[in-house]
Every structure is written in structure tokens, then in C-alpha cells.
Design a protein around this nucleic acid. Structure first.
Lengths: 210, 210, 210, 210
DNA sequence: AATGAATGAGAATTCATTCAT
DNA sequence: TATGAATGAATTCTCATTCAT
């Protein structure tokens, strides 16, 4: 009947995949289930995607595209890394609340079950941010906005570590439980405090005149 | 053959489990495989552990016990949080290199596949460190060693986030690949730099007279 | 191969199940074995039947349906219970020889291993005959064809007991052996005698003018 | 410790076996479970009984012994088959209520799962009663107490059929449910009616002067 | 002699993938 | 082209039986 999968249907299929992968993990998610959720037949799934692995990759890439888009829309003054950090954190907090399954799937791909994708995906996903953050903080050091004894690469790395954990804290059940042990509420209820304290945590490494 | 299990063999079984769970994840690890790796029959596994879930929990708890032991051996001056941080990081770096599968399994339990354990395990595992770090930094603020505008709970939380990522960076393949994007080497080769830069990253939040 | 299941194949699967359940009993029959016998894959079994229990129930119900059909085809004069008994016995003797596995499975469901089904199946299977026979003999008593001091319910019950044992005697190995102890031949070889003597056994309770 | 299984312990073990076999059936009963119930080790079970089959046989034989003892204690006037039938029924009703697991196990051995024992056990168990009843009714016919057109062998067979069903009706869950469909109560509550109606059912085949 | 831990074959069930319709 | 039924390898878990202690 369906002459060709419309653009929109394709989106739906990938979203169905992202949700399932995020909820159950790669291994525990069944292709039949995804097909049912997307209201298509498994046959179609296998027509468009060679196998489950490729479909997973397609889901990851779609999700990554959306994240990149969100991040690329952040406007900021070139020479103010703290301002950039603030907008980045805000954007991520918003993204987490709008697309929790994306983040959950993102987390899944760091797991053992997805180990075979690490070499490709780490490069593909983290490459962008690694370069972006490294550049931001290298420039900041040049501009004497970062303390001079700081290694901008490792600084960027720790910074990104904090952002990753931030996202998992919003979206993954284990990390949500863990957050409650520290702050006795859900991350959503502590949006502002999290952002502000995280900025303070970073600020002291910067040498901004305020 | 029918060889009685020694205390040591029992340890080996748990280690075999930890390795497999770390390498493949909970769902992808088969009890038969674990049994084969430990050179016992599946029957034994099911004699000692009601089912796979309980065996997994036993592995997690054994691993947690060893980590707790390592952490409890850290000596430090009560009023010097930076010194404590340094020893903590060193200890973790060592632990990561000695027991990478433990950390890998620790990471696995944050994944969707282990989601049913989140409520129990987050409390059990993170509870200890959450209290410990919160206490350390609350005290530090009382002693005016932490900047007064810092929330010690969230500070402890971010601190722990950095330590978790540190461990995953040493042990999990995705994170190892990711680290290379920032620093173009393996974490082991950058032990000292990682520790020092991480300390610098923290230091500015402290108000230590040096 | 991937051959679509025909209506007829579906029948065959149930027949395979009935045979296996009759030969080995519920617990001792494996789904793989049934699948092999029906020349299909286990997967199909589980596509059509949620689990082994449901498949067993489906087999029982198919079998019951056929028995009911055979019984409903018995024609008889309303006011002649002995004639009805005769035709009933004949029908059962024929049914036993045509579908011995059905009777064997019927016997299996009275066993401990099928105990969890007793409440459902006793009602479902015995309900029909219980009502039918009770009605027949109540009416017979009203018509003064049954001795007036007879309880028609218990009479129906004993009557059905004899018919159950008749069936088991034809189909179940233990009961076949047992029959030989009494009559030194197989039930098939004694068809006529069995029927006639059973009718005589009953007849004296009736008050028919011959 | 235990130098030798005492007579009493042996009884206990067999009773444990009878209970378990009666409750779960041959295949579903585990040797470990029986050992636990009898508070001995599996090792002992296998010391005394070569394997599960032999242990089952031992249980059956013990049970049979007790039944035979009960039946042999029935006193009756040589030439009164109806009186004998009455005492026999009473004895069985009592036996059923005192030893339901024995009867359940007896039923189990007629099932498919125990099919390999049919040739031995049918002879062993039914042989006694087959001869006894055949003799009783042959004699009755000679004495003109049984209608002359009756085949005493088949009469004995039907008679025994009714007694078997009587026992199952008291002890096996499926048959208990079935009885309720006819008489809307438990067999125990209908002891007297069952016995009387069964005797009436038989009586008309006899030619007793009352 | 008694114990009960260890063995391992076998059963139910799932799901990625194929291919007849 | 789209469908979804069919396949069957792989997984969890059980239990009769053995044999080291």
C-alpha cells in the first residue's frame, strides 16, 4: 500500500527505536516490538536497515543530529566562556527534559552491550564536542580568561564529563536515584540550583572580571 | 570430578561473573558462560544463587565491598579536603587499573538492562559515597576551607560525578576512546596529568592557604 | 522453507499435541518434541499458543469438541434410556478405537500433573455429560422407567463412572492390562460382550417392559 | 551417625514418597524433595533404592500392602455378595479418608508417565482384586445369587470399575470437582448416600431374597 | 555408613532474521 | 513493495544421580 516511507514515517520509526533502545537497552529491545510501536511491519524495518545494529546506529545518528542542532544554536560572545557554559547547560537541561529517551539511548551506547560500536561512535559523537570545548578553552587561555596553569584539553575533558553526568542525571533512572541521595529531590526541581552551582564550580577556574 | 567448592573457588566464581558482566553486560552474559569461565557447572551457580539476578547482585556487592575497603584505607588530615581528594583520586586510579572489570560492571548497573535494580543499588552503592563526600565538604565549609557561597551537597555531587567519569574513563571502552579524543593517549599514560589537573580544577573552589 | 500454516496443518499440530500428551503426559511432553512431531518449529507453537499450558488446553478443547460432536449425533427415542445407553456405549467404543490418544489425554488431565486445571476442566468437560445424564435419568424416573427408589443424580454419576472406565479400558495401557486380568483378551476383541454385559448390568435398574 | 535405618524411619521415608508422588505425580516429584520431607539425605535414598523408579515401586508396594491388609480384614458370610459389597465399600470409604495420598499415588500409576510400569503393576495390584471379585461372583452365580444370564468375569470387572472410581472420587482433585457437578457436595458429606445408592445399583443384578 | 554439594543433560521460551504471499 | 508468519539457535533454570568428604 505504502508506496514509499514518507519522511515523517521515517522519523516516527527512528523515534520509536530511540524510545525502545532508551527504555530497554540495545539487547533487550526487540525489532518486532519497535515495528509494532511504529505501526509498521518488521519487513519494512529490514528493508531500510540491514539489521538491528544498523538500525541502532541510525537511531543514534538521528539523535545526535538533533543534539548538534540544539548546541549549534547557542549564541554567545566569543570571549566569554562562562556565558557560553551557562547557555550550554541551559540548553542541555532543556534538551534532557524534552528528549529523555535520546539521552538514555546515548547512555546505552556507552555500555558493554554496545561495545562493538565504541570506536566508531565515540569518535562520531564525542569528536564534535571534544573539538568544540577544547577550542573554546584554548582560546580562553590565550585570552587569559582561563588560569594560566590550566591544561585546556583536560579542562575541556572534565567540563564535558560534568555535562555528560548532568544529562544522565536528568534521564537515567540509576542516576536520578543517585541525585536524590545528594539533594533529596528530582533534578527537574533543582534546575536552577544545579545550573548555578555548576557554574560556580567552574567559575573559579576562570579569571573573569565580574 | 565432583570437587567441593573452596572458599577461594567461590571468590573465583564471583570474579568470573564480574568479568563477564563487565564485558558483556547483564543481559548478554549467560550463566552457562560464567560457569564455563569459572570451570564449574551451572548447577553450582544455581545452588549458591537463586537466579541470575541474585548472582548479579552478589557480584555487585562483592565488588562494592572491595571498593569500600580501598576507600576506607585512605588516611588524611581531617581539615584538608584537597589532600583527601588527592589520595582518593590516586586510590581510584590504582583501583581502576587493578580491577577494571569491577568498574565496568559498576557502569553496567547504571544501564537500562539493570534498571530494575536502580532503586536498591543506587542507594546501596552511592549512599556511602554521597554521605561521605557531603560530610567532608560540609565540614570543609564550616572550617572555611570551601568558598562560603558553595552548596556543599551539590559540590559533593559534582565532585563525585568527576570521580565516576574518571573511573569509567579508565575502564570502559567507549570512555577510553573518548578520552583519546581529548588527550590523544590512554588514561594510564596520563595518570599524573589527570590527577593534577583534576585537583587544580577543584582547588579553586577551596580557600586553602598554600 | 517458511511454509504458511494451513488450516489443516493447524489441526495436525493439535493432533500431534494430543498424541504426545496422551503418550507421555503433560509434564513429560516437550514443546520441541511436539514441534518436531508436527514438523514445524517451536516458534510457531509459541506464536499460536502463549505457553505450554495454553497449548495443552487447546488440545483438550479440540478433543472435547470432537467427542461432543460424536455424542450429539446419537439419535434415540426420548423415553427409552436403555436404548440411549446402548447407542452411547457403541459410540464411545467406536470413538475409543478411532481416537485413542484423545482418551489418553483425557485421562492425563485427571492426574496430579494437570491438577492446576482441575477446576476449569472438570467443569468444562464433565459439566456437559453430568447435565445430560442427570436429565436423562431424572426424566426416566418421572416416566417410571427407573426404579422409584433410585436417586437419578447418583445413578447418572455411577453410569458415567462406568463409561469413563470403559474409555480408559480401551485406551490406557494400565487399564488394558487390567482388563486382560478379568477377561484374558483385549477390549477390542470383546466389544460386543462388554457392551451387552454392561447393558445387562444397567438394565435391572430400569423397569422396562421388554 | 545412623547405624541403620530403623523400621520406623523406613516407613517414614516411604510415606514421604507416597505423599509427594500423590501430590505431584511421578515426574514432578523430586528425590531431593522427598529426602528433605523425610529428613534424610538423598544419599540414603539412593543407598536403599537404586533409582527413582525403584523407589516409586517400593512406595506403591508399601501402599498396596496396606490396602490388601484392610481388604483382607473384611468379614462376611460366604454366600452373601451384597453384604460383602457393602463392607468392601465401607472399608474403601474409610481407607480413602485415612490415606488419600495412597489412592492418589495409585491413580498416578495409571497415567502415561508411569506407563513403563503398567505390565508389572497392573498384574501386581489388580491381580489380587481381579481374582477375588471374579471368585466371589462366580460363586454367587453358582449359588444362584447372581442372575443366571450374567457373565461373572465382566460383572466383577464393572464392579471393580465402580470401586476404582469411588476411590478416585474421594481422593483426586479432578474427580472431586466432577462429583460436585453431580451431587453438589464433597464425597465425604455424601458417604452414606453414595454407599446406599451404589448398593442399590448393584442389588438388582443379584437375586437375593430379602 | 551418611551426607549433601556438584554435575550436566534437557525443558520452556524468546527473538533476530528470512522469505512466501 | 509490504507483510508478518515461520525458523531455530540460544538462554535460563531444574533435578536425577554421583561421589568426595
Amino acid at each position: 500500500m505504502l508506496k514509499r516511507l514518507t519522511e515523517q514515517k521515517l522519523e516516527e520509526i527512528l523515534e520509536a527505536g530511540i524510545s525502545e533502545f532508551g527504555e530497554r537497552g540495545l539487547e533487550q529491545t526487540s525489532m518486532n516490538r519497535i515495528a509494532a510501536r511504529a505501526e509498521i511491519s518488521v519487513g519494512v524495518l529490514y528493508k531500510y536497515y540491514e539489521n538491528k545494529d544498523f538500525f541502532f546506529l541510525a537511531c543514534v545518528r538521528k539523535s545526535l543530529g538533533e543534539l548538534e542542532k540544539a548546541l549549534s544554536e547557542i549564541e554567545h560572545e566569543e570571549d566569554n566562556p562562562l556565558q557560553y557554559a551557562e547557555r550550554l547547560i541551559s540548553t542541555l537541561q532543556k534538551h534532557c527534559q524534552e528528549h529523555p529517551s535520546h539521552i538514555r539511548m546515548y547512555h546505552e551506547l556507552t555500555c558493554a552491550g554496545s561495545g562493538r560500536f565504541s570506536p566508531i561512535l565515540a569518535q562520531e559523537i564525542e569528536g564534535m564536542t571534544a573539538h568544540l570545548y577544547s577550542a573554546v578553552f584554548e582560546k580562553a587561555r590565550c585570552n587569559e580568561m582561563l588560569r594560566p596553569d590550566t591544561d585546556p584539553q583536560l579542562f575541556a575533558f572534565f567540563f564535558d564529563n560534568l555535562l555528560m553526568m548532568l544529562q544522565f542525571t536528568y534521564c537515567c533512572s540509576y542516576y536520578r536515584e543517585r541525585f536524590r541521595l545528594y539533594y533529596n529531590t528530582t533534578p527537574e526541581n533543582a534546575d536552577v540550583q544545579i545550573r548555578n552551582e555548576l557554574l560556580k564550580f567552574l567559575k573559579h577556574s576562570f579569571t573573569l572580571k565580574e
